[in-house]
Nucleic acid binder design. Structure first.
Length: 462
DNA sequence: TTTTCCATGT
């Protein structure tokens, strides 16, 4: 026992020292994403081939944005003339990795060389900026579109309007909505839908209705989406009767409710405790010619999970199989999540395997739920198993799960595994905080406070 | 890849 503790302290100490030696602590967090020098990077196979791989399909394979850029350069040096498909493929890649500095540099080239761009490129970039919380950049780019010799249509206007609404810039959105005509845009259903959504997000039912009226006055046809926004709002408020009234209204106007409409109503029913009515609606919709979709099953399954009726949720999943519905990640995530929360990680893992056998690829959320689920029941071997699969599919657990996993493995005496996890964390620029290290050493030493001091000392020396 | 939706939550 004493021996293993000494060993543990030794290993942790060695690990901390290795870290400090390798790099100053403060730079660890901000170190560039493991960018290898270009000489170490594996060479692409294109130059030797008789028929070179087109740049576009080549760049799509690349993970690292820096590598994508150098590939772009290599092709250029080989005499390849980059045109719009090249530039857009590169820009999509860079934007997805949030390398906006490079995006701007490349956009500069595009402008200089007068490359003719499609509007969708700008729409995608604006959305990526917004997702990365660079709303200012998104706004700037929207205004710059004409300077790229690209015609700005209602599509980018609507995309931009939506970005403003989704990022708490309601006033600016309302402002350009009002000035749209002067800006040369004729608003369509989508524009009105976005504005209605904006008002509803603020909880302004009356104002949303005013926009709805305005829409009718201007002879812009409301769509299912318009009704869904309004119905969804009422359902969330628990005003089911009003929501059903709107359903009737849309039917009278010859508009067909879709699966989302029914899903919203079913959710509303569940939230006021009318669980069986929600279930009935699944049959009703089918009777009326609207085939249930995954969303509808999802609503019911979530409701069952929330009420702790997990076995019923399981049979619903079976029913889907019987009815030949292709079950997706979300469906499985719902079930796996509730099983995990109930401490039934082993069972959740069965579904985690089942989904993959059925050809359904787990996403970041699935892995996280699974890792956390195993940690919750202190099955750290199970967690490690999922953790490995997670790394292979290039996903990453939450920092808390990482810490918990390291700690758990330590306590089980699986020191090599704990160090492996720590190493993988470091590769992803994820660091245990001072508290984390302290807890780790304290755990390793069996609860001694002295050990905590050791870490503080080790770090403060630096 | 211009708007509505079941779960997570970087």
């Amino acid at each position: 026992m004493i021996h293993s503790r000494t060993k543990a302290i030794g290993q942790i100490q060695a690990y901390v020292i290795k870290l400090i030696d390798a790099q100053p602590f403060h730079t660890l967090r901000s170190s560039k994403r493991n960018a290898k020098p270009s000489s170490e990077r594996p060479r692409r196979a294109y130059p030797k081939r008789r028929k070179p791989i087109p740049f576009v399909s080549n760049v799509k394979e690349v993970q690292d944005p820096v590598e994508a850029l150098s590939l772009f350069d290599e092709y250029h040096q080989m005499g390849f003339k980059h045109d719009y498909p090249s530039y857009s493929a590169l820009l999509y890649k860079l934007a997805r990795c949030r390398n906006f500095e490079a995006v701007e540099a490349i956009l500069g080239h595009v402008q200089d060389r007068n490359i003719h761009c499609r509007e969708t490129l700008f729409i995608v970039l604006i959305q990526h900026y917004a997702k990365a919380h660079s709303v200012e950049k998104a706004i700037e780019l929207f205004h710059q579109i004409p300077s790229f010799n690209c015609v700005r249509t209602l599509q980018s206007f609507n995309a931009f309007l939506n970005v403003l609404i989704e990022n708490d810039r309601f006033c600016e959105a309302n402002d350009i909505f009002g000035r749209s005509y002067k800006m040369g845009f004729r608003l369509n259903t989508v524009s009105f839908n976005i504005m209605i959504k904006g008002w509803l997000e603020k909880g302004e039912w009356e104002e949303a209705c005013k926009v709805f009226e305005e829409m009718l006055e201007k002879k812009v046809q409301p769509s299912v989406v318009t009704y869904n926004s309004l119905i969804g709002f009422l359902c969330r408020k628990g005003e089911l009767d009003k929501a059903m009234g709107l359903l009737e209204d849309m039917r009278q106007k010859g508009k067909y409710p879709n699966a989302v409409t029914y899903a919203l109503l079913m959710e509303g029913m569940c939230s006021v405790g009318k669980h069986s009515d929600a279930k009935k609606m699944m049959f009703d919709m089918e009777y009326r010619g609207c085939k249930p979709q995954l969303v509808n099953f999802g609503v019911l399954m979530t409701d069952l999970g929330k009420r702790g009726k997990i076995d019923e949720a399981k049979s619903l999943l079976n029913e889907m199989k019987k009815r030949r519905f292709k079950r997706d990640v979300v469906t499985y995530n719902i079930l796996i999540n509730y099983l995990s929360k109930e401490g039934r990680a082993a069972e959740a893992y069965k579904y985690f395997i089942e989904m993959q056998i059925g050809g359904c690829v787990p996403n970041a959320a699935t892995y996280r739920i699974m890792v956390d689920g195993f940690c919750r029941v202190e099955d750290f071997e199970g967690a490690l198993k999922v953790f490995n699969a997670m790394l292979i599919s290039r996903h990453c657990p939450r920092l808390e799960s990482f810490e918990y996993l390291v700690m758990g493995l330590m306590v089980c005496g699986k020191l090599d595994d704990a160090c492996f996890v720590l190493d993988e964390m470091r590769k992803r620029d994820m660091q245990l905080g001072l508290e984390g290290w302290k807890n780790l050493v304290i755990k390793a030493c069996g609860g001694g406070i002295v050990a905590g001091g050791l870490v503080t000392e080790l770090i403060s020396v630096h």
